[in-house]
Simulated scan of single mutants.
Amino acid sequence: MFGGGSHRRAGWGLAVFLATGSLIVLGPGTGSADAAAACGGRQVKTVPFATGELRVYKTHGYACAVTVAKSPGARRQMAVTLQARGGGPVSDSGLFTQQAGPVTVHAINRCVRASGSVAGSGASTGWILC
């Protein structure tokens, strides 16, 4: 009775370990594929700025945003914020090498706005998807 459950837990743990190990082995990518994989859906807005770009995606009633550095490399301050109209902002910021985010908000029939920055330079969208 307990043996089957422990095998399932062990299998789940192995799957998580392998997935995590795969991410470590693959290492940093080009930026665009990583951002698309992080958010999923279709890209609806790209706002370039001097040190990177802000990307907004939409899928199944949700909006997602990432800020991607133009030149991945050294850790530097990056941030991304996404807000649905009538809701509070959701942010990710810190010292990153490639991207900040993804951040996701529920956006069925709601406008959203996003902003992002890399090393002090940034951009925002204003209200979109209205």
Rank of each mutant, 00 (worst) to 15 (best):
L18E: 09
M78E: 03
G29T: 00
G86E: 06
F17S: 14
S6G: 09
P102Q: 13
T81F: 03
S93P: 05
H60G: 15
W127P: 06
A10V: 02
G126T: 06
R55D: 05
V112W: 01
T59M: 14
G122P: 01
S32F: 02
T97L: 09
R76W: 03
V90M: 08
S117D: 02
G11I: 12
T20C: 08
I108F: 15
T30Q: 14
V66D: 00
V112D: 03
G31V: 08
F96L: 00
G52R: 01
A119T: 07
V103P: 00
L54H: 00
A84I: 13
V68R: 07
K70P: 04
V16W: 12
G116Y: 02
L95S: 13
C130R: 13
C111M: 09
Y57M: 04
A15F: 10
A36D: 08
P28N: 02
M1F: 09
T104M: 14
V66A: 07
V118C: 05
G3Q: 11
Y62G: 08
A15R: 08
P72T: 01
S124Q: 13
A63N: 09
I24E: 10
A100L: 04
A35R: 00
G31T: 05
P102V: 09
C111D: 15
T20Y: 11
I24C: 12
G5C: 15
G27F: 02
V118A: 02
A114Q: 10
K70L: 15
G29Y: 05
V105L: 06
L54K: 04
V68L: 11
A35H: 02
G120S: 10
G13L: 08
A119P: 04
V25Q: 10
G13N: 12
N109K: 12
A84D: 11
G122E: 12
R75W: 14
